[in-house]
């Protein structure tokens, strides 16, 4: 079919993507501004990045956020794999409707409600708020996104590969380990990365569930943003964007390569 793209289509694409990307580009640009003022371009400078390294509060928050994101990303990937496997393979079972309702709700429900509910729950059972309560909160939301990603992969899975393995004498456990899991691995990695990024980004859930001493990076950024525009925030933002971009590229190539040789 002849697919020539019209001028108005190009205009829509350019305008749409400009709207999405110009603010981010400006943010990055002004992280290199020597002047403290947004409206004055004082020349290129990496001064604000240098100042970041001296901001110990910020650095300790980065460390907390990374640990929370790693743990909740891993838990989300494990629980998401189980949930997706159950949704695809368990057929119709009692509680399936409730199960899928529970899986889709945390993704779409306003964060303030989920945050408040978890906080009141932690207080009611007497669990002191801190590092682990944030991990629990992020896992609860992250596992649902992880399920969706892994579900998509499992649903298009070629079952004859498993049948072949079992015909050749593999036990169900061996088949799962040597056939099912390797084929789903790229999706599980993607699910982990998604849950990891969601955790790293979350402000609302963390501010409900974090205690003293577990202030995450978004909480620190938030309190600084409320005080006004500061080039230091631009610098940390740029670093975060760069980190996510690198991570996504690595994941893209890793998954792309594995995806081409699924049965290897």
């Amino acid at each position: 079919m002849n697919r020539r793209i019209g001028a108005h289509h190009i205009a829509a694409l350019v305008a749409g993507f400009a709207f999405l990307y110009v603010p981010i580009a400006l943010l990055i640009l002004y992280s290199f501004n020597a002047s403290r003022l947004v409206t004055v371009w004082g020349g290129f400078s990496t001064r604000w990045y240098g100042e970041l390294l001296q901001n110990e509060q910020l650095l300790s928050s980065v460390w907390i956020s990374l640990r929370v994101a790693l743990l909740s990303g891993a838990f989300s990937a494990i629980l998401g794999t189980c949930a997706a496997y159950a949704l695809v393979r368990a057929g119709r079972f009692r509680g399936r409707t409730i199960f899928s309702a529970l899986l889709y709700s945390p993704m779409i429900m306003p964060e303030v409600i989920v945050g408040l509910a978890l906080l009141l729950f932690f207080v009611a059972i007497g669990l002191e708020r801190g590092f682990w309560t944030v991990v629990i909160a992020h896992t609860t939301v992250g596992m649902c996104f992880a399920t969706v990603v892994i579900h998509a992969r499992l649903a298009e899975f070629d079952r004859s590969l498993e049948e072949a393995a079992m015909d050749l004498g593999a036990t169900p456990a061996t088949t799962f380990r040597t056939v099912t899991l390797p084929i789903c691995a790229p999706a599980i990695v993607a699910a982990f990365l998604l849950a990891f990024t969601i955790s790293l980004d979350d402000f609302v859930l963390a501010s409900f569930t974090a205690g003293t001493g577990s202030t995450t990076l978004p909480m620190r950024i938030y309190s600084q943003v409320r005080l006004g525009v500061s080039p230091q925030i631009n610098a940390i933002s740029t670093l975060m964007i760069a980190a996510v971009a690198v991570m996504l590229c690595v994941a893209y190539f890793a998954i792309g390569r594995k995806g081409r040789a699924p049965a290897a």
Partner: peptide
């Protein structure tokens, strides 16, 4: 598969 579903289901029941 139903057996496996207990882990995520229990998590969501408890924490959601």
């Amino acid at each position: 598969a139903r057996l496996i579903s207990w882990a995520p289901l229990a998590w969501l029941l408890l924490f959601f």
